[in-house]
């Protein structure tokens, strides 16, 4: 770890004062579950680390007038998972539970989870975010969608697909002391095209302060992750679905977002089109899954992820529609009911 200056501001304005406009000179510390590893590996070498955990305004969860919820980015994941305000957004809770690590849940924050750096092992070994070694290298966990440019890594946020499916927005402050804007969460992510860009659209001296979830407005939602095991490792593929269905079960609105498959959380309009105007059943969900991966361009070692992404989409849709998704857990539930 390179020696750095440490700052612990108490207000949002102080945070902005401490962040450098130059890329990589400063890094934001929240829970630290990602940043500390990157610092130790010298993957990032900031001159200053700005700890935002003393900023009280970033730790609030508030129900908004007219519905919806605002969650500060320094709120830890365990608090979010247990908070009653989020009862109507089970997709978010399922994503947090899927992390399967009490340590990460209690220490990790919402902002840190959304903006954690990619898990790409070439990047983590200091070989660059856009390493050309990936294309013919060990790419079994890399992108199958949105990978035609130099970026082959996957966006690894567990919660972003759920939040995007629910139409979340983010409040961003900076770079000026009074600058503030709200933008769709999807606009926070980008696929970098060169080594000067990161995987998010923030300027070095901007800060995401809150995530704003719109009212659930009759929608149902679910997250499904295909995980190799029951540990805290990242899933092989994931999807979140948010549906609004009429009294007959006909889908009126649908949004499906995939995780772990592209450099950004991947919104699938193809899956949405399959679902609109239809009653969800296994066949329809399967068709939506197939549509979601219809444009997949797997790399040399990750064709299997196409199947996993398809299944994740199918099962997320089935769960969002209140149906059984047929995985190990539902099988175990069936046995329990029989007993």
């Amino acid at each position: 770890m390179k020696a750095f200056e440490y700052a612990a501001p108490a207000t949002e304005k102080e945070v902005l004062q401490l962040l450098s406009p130059e890329p990589s000179r400063t890094e934001i510390l929240a829970g630290g579950t990602d940043l500390v590893g990157l610092l130790k590996k010298l993957v990032v070498t900031p001159d200053r680390v700005v700890n935002i955990m003393e900023v009280e305004s970033l730790k609030s969860i508030q129900v908004l007038p007219g519905g919806g919820v605002s969650v500060g980015t320094a709120v830890t994941l365990d608090v979010i998972a247990e908070h009653s305000c989020l009862d109507v957004y089970p997709a978010v809770r399922q994503a947090i539970h899927g992390i399967n690590s009490m340590q990460l849940q209690c220490q990790g924050t919402l902002g840190g989870e959304l903006l954690q750096r990619p898990r790409c092992w070439y990047f983590r070994q200091g070989r660059g975010l856009l390493s050309t070694e990936v294309e013919t290298g060990a790419n079994r966990l890399h992108a199958i969608l949105g990978n035609s440019g130099p970026a082959k890594f996957v966006s690894c946020s567990r919660i972003a697909p759920a939040l995007m499916a629910l139409g979340a927005e983010v409040r961003v402050i900076g770079p000026g002391p009074n600058d503030e804007k709200r933008l769709p969460l999807a606009d926070l992510f980008q696929t970098p095209q060169n080594n000067e860009e990161r995987e998010n659209t923030l300027l070095p001296n901007q800060l995401v302060t809150h995530i704003i979830l719109p009212p659930v407005a009759g929608r149902t939602c679910a997250t499904y992750e295909v995980r190799h095991g029951e540990g805290p490792e990242f899933p092989l593929a994931a999807a979140a679905a948010a549906l609004r269905m009429d009294h007959r079960g006909v889908v009126e609105t649908a949004r499906v977002v995939m995780g772990q498959v592209a450099p950004i959380p991947w919104l699938s309009s193809e899956a949405e089109q399959v679902l609109l105007g239809r009653v969800v059943d296994e066949r329809v969900a399967e068709q939506a899954g197939e549509a979601a991966v219809s444009r997949a361009t797997p790399l040399s070692e990750n064709t299997y992820k196409v199947q996993l992404a398809k299944v994740a989409v199918k099962r997320a849709i089935l769960l969002a529609a209140g149906l059984d998704c047929g995985d190990f857990r539902s099988h175990a539930r069936q046995i329990e009911e029989l007993v």
Binding site: N100, R127, T136
Partner: peptide, 28 residues
């Protein structure tokens, strides 16, 4: 779970961290 994954061009052991080198957990 356990795999030593190497980059074919450089011979680099790419998953040589416990975050990436998968082991069985209690739930497994």
């Amino acid at each position: 779970f356990e795999e030593r994954i190497t980059d074919p061009a450089t011979g680099v052991f790419v998953n040589a961290e416990l975050a990436d080198y998968r082991l069985a957990r209690l739930g497994d």
